[in-house]
């Protein structure tokens, strides 16, 4: 962070300075009397207050309210007009003859979402980590134009889900660029987004395309943390490159990869926007994931009434999964830190 150019610094300063100083002086007119009254010791509470109010209003309170929503029924958003307490929502969500077959469930859309999400996360995360490591290892070599290649792989991360979705929807059209390339090599046209057996694969591909750069960057940072003297020693011994990779690079990268794996899973389970733009969860329900179910049930069911309770119950289920993944992340990142200290 320290090596930012002075230009950027000055640029930010110059633009922000005038209105900023004005605002800050104005606030000081209020803050000074407050400090006189409550004393310097109590000032940190004043500084913390705005942020904590926001957290309380938009994170903690909603988290508590989510329990009430999931345990109450009715079509109204106001608590006073909802029936409390009831486990109706959870009963409905988990009402299945067989959990392995979504068709036997009352909320078959939810269970399809669950299975689609599992399928999506397994392949998306698996393939993404494979390609991230491959890319990072290549970018870690001494190659021409390394910075250029690094930005090329990274920049899709900055694109918005709508942009990603629209670009790829257009390229994967039946008469799109991808099919033109396939046909020019003698293949047959594929309906990437409207054929149920292809839609999921396309969605996974686009999702990897959009997020790979982020994980590549993290893996690259991990690779650069591997002490170079290990490689020098191996080179002296005339170890083959394949062996160096499997005996030095991969084992030392493992703690990093675990964290990347869990981070990617946490993000993967919550995937919504690119798929929403790309296929809208279709064709049918073949690419609709859990968050899509929550969104549709809670906010976008056309025709039928919005069911906030059911959406809240489904988010609670998602929350439990995420909590589990997060605890795993905390556990592994602590392990990683202690291992680093040993070295």
């Amino acid at each position: 962070m320290e090596n930012i150019s002075n230009q950027t610094k000055n640029f930010f300063l110059r633009i922000l300075n005038i209105p900023f100083a004005f605002l800050m002086h104005a606030i000081d007119l209020i803050m000074w009397p407050i400090q006189k009254i409550i004393g310097v010791r109590n000032m940190p509470y004043i500084f913390l207050l705005p942020n904590l109010i926001f957290f309380g209003l938009f994170v903690i309170m909603p988290l508590v309210a989510n329990f009430f929503f999931s345990l109450s029924s009715g079509d109204e958003l106001l608590f006073a007009e909802r029936e409390l307490p009831t486990t109706k929502q959870y009963d409905q969500l988990f009402d299945c003859e067989s959990y392995l077959n979504p068709n036997t469930c009352t909320e078959d859309f939810f269970w399809r979402g669950v299975y689609n999400t599992i399928f999506f996360v397994v392949f998306q995360v698996g393939l993404m980590i494979f390609f991230s490591v491959l890319t990072a290892v290549i970018l870690n070599k001494k190659i021409i134009g390394r910075g250029f290649f690094r930005s090329v792989f990274f920049f899709p991360v900055l694109l918005s889900p709508v942009v990603v979705g629209l670009i790829w929807q257009w390229i994967l059209l039946k008469n799109g660029a991808f099919n033109a390339i396939i046909e020019s090599y003698g293949g047959d046209k594929v309906s990437f987004l409207t054929d149920p057996s292809w839609a999921m694969a396309s969605v996974i591909f686009v999702s990897i395309w959009a997020h790979m750069g982020f994980y590549t960057l993290i893996v690259l940072a991990g690779l650069q943390a591997i002490p170079p003297n290990l490689y020098e020693a191996a080179e002296m011994d005339g170890t083959s490159r394949e062996r160096i990779f499997f005996r030095i690079t991969l084992p030392l990268l493992m703690p990093n990869l675990l964290v990347v794996f869990i981070l990617a899973s946490i993000k993967g389970v919550q995937t919504f926007d690119e798929i929403y733009v790309l296929t809208g969860g279709g064709p049918g329900t073949s690419t609709s994931l859990i968050v899509q179910y929550i969104f549709t049930t809670g906010f976008a069911s056309s025709g039928s009434v919005q069911n906030f309770g059911l959406a809240a119950a489904a988010s609670m289920v998602l929350g439990v999964v995420l909590l589990f993944l997060t605890l795993m992340q905390l556990y592994f990142s602590r392990n990683k830190e202690s291992k680093h200290q040993e070295i």
């Binding site: 994170v59 309170m61 909603p62 989510n66 906010f299 809240a312 988010s315």
Partner: peptide, 13 residues
């Protein structure tokens, strides 16, 4: 706590 699991109540607030 990501937004995706508290969509409904944040909407309520």
């Amino acid at each position: 706590i990501p937004l995706t699991i508290i969509l409904v109540p944040v909407f309520y607030v």
